[in-house]
């Protein structure tokens, strides 16, 4: 463990930080929420790729 903690380069696999944040927020339910969010974001990204929507209105509205 000495080698691991002090000599190994500070690598972080993608998604690891997010998984840790999710664990802190959602505890034991984190994997379930993470899976639901992943599916939803995938749908959103895929739809945006496919349909290439533009923002409406072009300029944000103001209060």
């Amino acid at each position: 463990s000495f080698l691991r903690s002090s000599v190994a380069p500070p690598t972080e696999r993608p998604g690891e930080r997010r998984a840790a944040e999710m664990k802190k927020l959602y505890g034991d339910d984190a994997p379930k929420i993470l899976a639901m969010e992943a599916a939803m974001q995938l749908t959103f990204d895929r739809n945006c790729d496919l349909k290439q929507p533009n923002y409406w209105p072009v300029i944000p509205l103001k209060l």
Partner: peptide
Amino acid sequence: VQKEALIRSRD
């Protein structure tokens, strides 16, 4: 009609 659009939740 705009066929495809993104709406900002801030709006």
